[in-house]
């Protein structure tokens, strides 16, 4: 590490040791959770650890993935996340298909359609742009040592509670369309074609957009 002449190596060693210590503690917590609580909590803890690690290492930020193409014409991060969505869609679809064919319930994140989604998503986007990060980004950056994101989290909890208090009023906007699972609305081949087609089109558009923005 020749480029770190000005950094003293003992400080680096200390950071690594503390990091290793936290890793050990995290694993102990996993075991304790696994032994004494329903396994869902241990798995959720593990999911969080893995995602926090991956997000930090790959600098993935959902806000930046949406913002950077619009502001700076850069789409590498966006394309990384579109790719991620392609793979997760295939995985989710396979699991859903298997469960439905076994007569089990449909799994996934479904919310009835209505104006609450556009309005809420817009407000969320405004906040994410102003505070420099979305929900996952805020948590990841607290881990990175940002005091600012601790304030964001406080605001986040306050806003969430405020929103939960007001939600009864907003949820009058929830519409009739309760089934939002594309394969149920269409059928499996059509839904997969539509989903992957949209993602591939977004990917290609992002690729072209960057080329266009940085043409010399």
């Amino acid at each position: 590490m020749a480029d770190k002449k000005r950094l003293n190596s003992s400080g680096l060693g200390i950071q690594r040791k503390v990091g290793g210590g936290f890793l050990l503690i995290a694993l102990v917590i996993y075991i304790v959770l696994y032994l004494f609580l329903p396994p869902l909590f241990a798995y959720s803890w593990l999911l969080g650890l893995a995602l926090g690690f991956i997000l930090q290492r790959s600098r993935i930020c959902f806000t930046a993935a949406i913002r950077d193409p619009l502001l700076f014409g850069m789409t590498e991060l966006s394309r990384g996340l579109i790719l991620s969505l392609m793979i997760s869609s295939l995985g989710f679809a396979a699991l859903q298909y298997y469960r439905l064919s076994q007569g089990l319930s449909l799994i996934g994140r479904f919310v009835p359609l209505g104006w609450h989604i556009p309005i809420g998503a817009f407000i969320f986007g405004l906040g994410a742009a102003i505070s420099g990060g979305c929900a996952s980004g805020t948590l990841m950056r607290i881990g990175e040592g940002f005091q600012m994101q601790l304030i964001v989290l406080i605001g986040f909890v306050l806003g969430s509670t405020h929103g939960a208090y007001d939600a009864g009023w907003w949820y009058q906007l929830i519409g009739e369309q309760e089934v939002t699972h594309l394969p149920t609305i269409l059928n499996w081949p059509k839904a997969l074609l539509l989903q992957l087609g949209l993602l591939i089109m977004l990917y290609l558009f992002a690729y072209w957009w960057e080329k266009y923005q940085f043409r010399s």
Binding site: I123, F124, L126, A128, I130, L153, G155, V157, G159
Partner: peptide, 13 residues
């Protein structure tokens, strides 16, 4: 403020 907006928006949506 940004955090507050995110929290509120996420609950609505």
């Amino acid at each position: 403020g940004g955090g507050w907006l995110m929290g509120y928006g996420a609950r609505i949506a």
